[in-house]
């Protein structure tokens, strides 16, 4: 029971991070039908931006309030990551629009390699640590010397994720921008004929996706305390798995998928073997694609006639 509760907390934390990344995959897929393989690396870049910004703030500017520093880091990382993803879309995907379907996907794989290698060369190949922050924990239960703890970090991650998802849901469902975004998702050509600038809307999708990935990046850095140039790949593919599991193109599906993948991974590590946790997560991808290709909350594919 204690282990179960502890793993539930850990899984939800991890799942929040996956969910935020998964939204970027699912939105881009929804609007241009492309799997943006560089998205995981955009997430990794955001963690590096956060790292650099955090070190600048604490060592150079000498900000001592950790919460103030984190808030600034969050805003800075969101801004620069969004800018990076905007530029990637502009340079690597937009010129290929209207080309054959595989072309932007291959371009995305290229961008993924480029980002990982750029960070490796410019930041070095080793793990980059940040000073540990917010180490306080709340002890929820204690029995036979085993404590079930909820770290403040985890509270921050879950609360921030929930708040962001709320704001994001409002943006997509209630605002004119969100309506234009959904219209482009359904029928880009028709949206253009109603005066919506489709290119701008697609750029906006990349910007929003990157901003959410940046939040995930900051929290990843805060949670694990280290980041490495190769850290984009595995979380990226797991978030992609989450998007597929939830039903690619579905925003609530991405969040649900993220949480499920996070839970599956942590429970697998706790009860079976920690070495095989990635195998478990990725098996989900194969099983979903074979038996439930539209995902949990996805719409069944209807061929446009």
């Amino acid at each position: 029971m204690d282990i179960f509760v502890q793993q539930l907390i850990n899984g939800l934390t991890l799942g929040s991070i996956y969910g935020l990344i998964a939204i970027g995959y699912t939105m881009v897929f929804g609007i241009i039908g492309m799997v943006n393989f560089a998205h995981g690396d955009v997430f990794m870049v955001s963690a590096f931006i956060a790292l650099i910004c955090f070190l600048l703030l604490t060592t150079v500017l000498g900000i001592t309030s950790i919460f103030l520093a984190l808030a600034i880091v969050l805003v800075v990382a969101m801004f620069f990551t969004a800018l990076t993803n905007w530029a990637i879309e502009r340079v690597a995907y937009r010129p290929l629009r209207g080309s054959f379907r595989l072309a932007p996907m291959i371009s995305a794989i290229g961008m993924s390699i480029l980002l990982a290698n750029f960070v490796q060369v410019s930041q070095g190949p080793r793990n980059k640590p940040v000073p540990p922050m917010i180490g306080d924990v709340i002890v929820l239960m204690e029995r036979d010397g085993y404590q079930v703890t909820l770290a403040w970090k985890q509270v921050i991650i879950m609360v921030l994720t929930a708040a962001l998802l709320g704001g994001f849901w409002y943006l997509v469902q209630k605002t004119s921008l969100g309506r234009a975004q959904r219209a482009c998702e359904q029928d880009r050509k028709m949206a253009a004929l109603l005066g919506i600038n489709v290119d701008h809307t697609i750029s906006l999708t990349f910007v929003i996706g990157a901003a959410l990935a940046a939040v995930a990046g900051v929290m990843y850095l805060m949670y694990y305390g280290v980041v490495n140039f190769a850290d984009g790949f595995v979380p990226g593919v797991k978030a992609f798995t989450a998007a597929v599991l939830g039903g690619i193109g579905s925003l609530p599906g991405a969040v649900l998928g993220g949480l499920l993948i996070g839970l599956i991974e942590t429970f697998w590590s706790a009860y079976f073997s920690i070495e095989y946790k990635d195998v478990a997560a990725f098996s989900i991808l194969a099983v979903t694609l074979i038996f439930l290709p539209q995902g949990l909350l996805g719409r069944p594919e209807v061929e446009k006639v």
């Binding site: 219209a183 028709m190 109603l194 006639v305």
Partner: peptide, 30 residues
């Protein structure tokens, strides 16, 4: 559509079927 103010409909209807009736009209006023 946005500047020259030409609007059109289609032979095979192209509504945003997943959106509500009202939202379809709001999109046109984006």
């Amino acid at each position: 559509s946005g500047e020259a103010k030409v609007a059109r409909t289609f032979q095979n209807i192209r509504l945003f079927t997943g959106m509500t009736v009202l939202e379809n009209l709001m999109v046109a006023q984006h």
